[in-house]
Nucleic acid binder design. Structure first.
Length: 271
DNA sequence: CTATGGACCTGAATGC
DNA sequence: TGCATTCAGGTCCATA
């Protein structure tokens, strides 16, 4: 469910409220994608210093350099509130703090909560080590982006999804960014010209930044940790619009499968 | 090394 | 109504 904009909207919705909180207890439900780790018993007593984001991961900086990694998978969402109702069947993690409870709700359980002693532990390196550059940060340079594409022979859509060149672009925003850049999703990444790489580079930043402003996309059940739905889906140009007229040229939006994921595009506007 | 398909899991929508 | 199939915002891992 969550791509970079949804994760960032989630982060913004509770980071300031949880900062400085002391952890009182932890409650877990069914197993998530990875075990939380053997040190989880040490969480009570630690405090939450800050909440950062890396790609689609939320990183809770805890006391003494500990790091709590949270990933929302496909169907996860967080809620942070002073008073929390009893855990339901799909609530699999509660972090009870002096400022409120942070709860992970995740029906499919592709998400994860992992405690790591810093960013250089084996588990942190396994999860974060291969991530590409942050698209909304200063480090997202055009030259390096184009060079990264040059090294990949897969279709551009799948290169974006893989997150090894640039992070945070998931299935919705990959289709949206490629539409805005006028590039066919099947184009081999290595064959994208400098001029088109530049269009894609700015399309990625524009679409992600715009989606953050709009509170993310709520297709089925996404909401911020304050329970707010997003609205970006209302301005999607192609995603989930198969058969509907292109907002730019009127021809029907096409859908195809790439790596078991749906891709939406306009045959006329994207070449 | 890169590229691809399968796996993980649940619920909603669709089809017969 | 009932049951099977398909699809859904991610990404690690095994296999070529």
């Amino acid at each position: 469910m969550p791509e970079l904009p949804e994760v960032e909207v989630t982060r913004l919705s509770f980071a300031h409220r949880i900062a400085g909180a002391r952890i009182l207890s932890v409650h877990t439900g069914k197993p998530l994608r990875w075990p939380i780790g053997a040190d989880a018993g040490a969480l009570p007593g630690m405090s939450v210093v800050a909440v950062r984001r890396r790609g689609k991961y939320l990183l809770l900086d805890l006391s003494e350099g500990w790091l709590l990694l949270i990933h929302l998978g496909m169907s996860g969402s967080l809620l942070f509130a002073a008073s929390m109702p009893p855990a339901g069947a799909h609530d699999h993690f509660d972090l009870v703090t002096t400022e409120g409870t942070l709860r992970l709700h995740d029906p499919r359980r592709f998400g994860a909560v992992v405690l790591s002693p810093g960013e250089t532990s084996d588990v942190a390196v396994k999860l974060l080590g291969r991530l590409g550059v942050e698209p909304l940060g200063e480090g997202f340079g055009l030259a390096a982006f184009h060079a990264g594409l040059k090294r990949r022979d897969s279709p551009i859509k799948q290169v974006l999804l893989a997150g090894e060149v640039v992070v945070g672009v998931g299935n919705i925003y990959a289709s949206e960014a490629l539409f805005r850049a006028g590039i066919r999703p099947t184009t081999r990444a290595s064959r994208i010209s400098a001029r088109r790489a530049e269009r894609l580079w700015s399309a990625i930043r524009d679409v992600l930044a715009r989606a953050v402003e709009r509170g993310g996309s709520t297709l089925r059940d996404f909401s911020s940790a304050q329970g707010q739905a997003g609205h970006f889906q209302l301005e999607a140009m192609v995603y989930a619009r198969a058969g509907e007229p292109c907002r730019q040229c009127g021809s029907p939006i096409r859908v195809l499968r790439q790596g078991q994921r749906s891709t939406f595009y306009c045959r006329v506007c994207q070449t």
